[in-house]
Amino acid sequence: MAQNTGTPGKGTGSSGTDSSRNSSGTGTSRTGTGAGPLTLAEFRALYRHLRSTCATATADRGALETITEDVVRAAAGQVRSGRTVTLAAPVETRQTADNPEPAGHRLVAPAKDEATARGLHFARDRFTMNVHGDADSHIDALCHVIYDGTMHNGVPVGSLSADGAHALNIDMARDGIVGRGVLLDIPGLRGTRWLEPGDHVTADDLAAAERRQGLRVGKGDLLFVRVGHRRRRDELGPWDAAGARAGLHPTALEFLAGREVAVLGSDGNNDTAPSTTEGVAFPVHVLALHALGIHLLDYLQFEDLLPLCEQEGRWSFLCVIAPLRLPAATGSPVNPVAVL
């Protein structure tokens, strides 16, 4: 995504931000410190550095290679209370400022005369969805990002055709992604309800959240970074998230590469808008998917998980991510489930 190509849900949008606040002022936050705007040259140097230092950057399955059978068995040991909770938001079927192409859902049966007729009839429905929009929870396959004419690990774009993606598609995760989930709560770290659109999370923020929450992100972890996007949307209403949203600073990907994280998810898009990087609209997507082979989960929700973590006094859990079986797709709607 080196350029904005007009892909629905992944546009750069306007340069302004939605400055509305919670009336109590609790929605405000300080801007992430320790990392400023990046020039294109600085971004390319960061890209090359991550590619050269990350052990899984050229692996066939990308960072999923870090989730070994031993990692899964250890993750199963995270289960204590047995409580389960979704990390997905309900699918949106209404048009809003951040969802100009909402998912479609309608009943196609029974017909009106069938509904009251004697005998057996079925209720049936049909769904349509722009998978990579700015409202619905979804997972990005490694083929989702094209940068400098290639996909992850140099795979040529010729593997993409009108009938689908024939390499690096979401079928790579057909057996599910199961591991230790870790939630880092950045608004909790900063003492605010959410990060304002345009704010960003730095590597220092991630390390500080670890210390505050008493854990350490490790190899093969499924890392979830809360910026409070969903809480802000619930309380203040939808806004043009394509043009203004909180996310990670590109240099925060050094933290993920150093810890050998397998998956990154956020309650926003993972990328800040407006972009912090000259000439690159989605630098975090480029670094995660293209450089490091880290699958991304966008627009999750952690407002159900957050109180459970606070009640139990721990921020790690068994997590199961099960994309749909869409063999040639660039992503999938997703409903990750945390098991505490």
Score class of each variant (00 low, 15 high):
residue 1 M to F: 09
residue 1 M to L: 07
residue 4 N to A: 02
residue 8 P to R: 01
residue 10 K to C: 02
residue 11 G to N: 12
residue 12 T to M: 06
residue 15 S to R: 15
residue 16 G to R: 13
residue 21 R to F: 09
residue 22 N to S: 14
residue 25 G to R: 13
residue 26 T to N: 09
residue 28 T to H: 07
residue 31 T to D: 12
residue 33 T to Q: 15
residue 35 A to L: 01
residue 37 P to M: 11
residue 42 E to M: 12
residue 44 R to F: 02
residue 45 A to P: 08
residue 45 A to H: 09
residue 48 R to A: 14
residue 49 H to F: 11
residue 57 A to D: 08
residue 58 T to I: 07
residue 58 T to L: 10
residue 59 A to M: 06
residue 60 D to P: 06
residue 62 G to M: 12
residue 64 L to P: 09
residue 70 D to K: 11
residue 74 A to R: 15
residue 75 A to L: 06
residue 81 S to L: 01
residue 86 T to P: 01
residue 88 A to G: 11
residue 90 P to V: 11
residue 93 T to V: 11
residue 96 T to D: 14
residue 99 N to C: 14
residue 99 N to P: 06
residue 106 R to Q: 14
residue 108 V to M: 12
residue 109 A to I: 02
residue 111 A to M: 08
residue 113 D to C: 01
residue 113 D to T: 11
residue 115 A to N: 00
residue 117 A to T: 01
residue 131 V to L: 08
residue 131 V to C: 01
residue 131 V to W: 07
residue 134 D to W: 02
residue 136 D to P: 11
residue 139 I to T: 11
residue 142 L to R: 12
residue 145 V to W: 09
residue 154 G to N: 08
residue 154 G to A: 05
residue 157 V to A: 13
residue 158 G to T: 15
residue 165 A to E: 07
residue 167 A to S: 14
residue 168 L to M: 03
residue 171 D to Y: 12
residue 173 A to D: 00
residue 174 R to K: 15
residue 174 R to G: 02
residue 178 V to A: 03
residue 179 G to F: 02
residue 179 G to R: 03
residue 185 D to G: 11
residue 187 P to N: 09
residue 194 W to V: 08
residue 198 G to R: 04
residue 199 D to C: 03
residue 199 D to I: 00
residue 202 T to Q: 06
residue 203 A to V: 02
residue 204 D to T: 01
residue 204 D to S: 06
residue 207 A to W: 07
residue 216 R to C: 00
residue 217 V to P: 04
residue 218 G to F: 01
residue 232 R to E: 06
residue 233 R to N: 14
residue 236 L to Y: 13
residue 237 G to D: 08
residue 238 P to T: 14
residue 239 W to Y: 06
residue 240 D to S: 13
residue 242 A to V: 10
residue 242 A to E: 14
residue 247 G to A: 08
residue 251 T to K: 13
residue 251 T to G: 08
residue 252 A to W: 08
residue 254 E to T: 15
residue 257 A to K: 10
residue 261 V to C: 05
residue 262 A to S: 13
residue 262 A to K: 05
residue 265 G to A: 05
residue 269 N to H: 12
residue 269 N to G: 07
residue 278 E to N: 07
residue 281 A to L: 03
residue 286 V to L: 00
residue 286 V to S: 04
residue 288 A to T: 14
residue 288 A to Q: 07
residue 291 A to R: 07
residue 295 H to Y: 11
residue 297 L to A: 05
residue 298 D to I: 01
residue 301 Q to R: 06
residue 316 S to E: 12
residue 320 V to R: 14
residue 323 P to K: 05
residue 327 P to I: 03
residue 329 A to D: 03
residue 333 P to Q: 12
residue 339 V to Q: 03
residue 339 V to W: 15
residue 339 V to D: 05
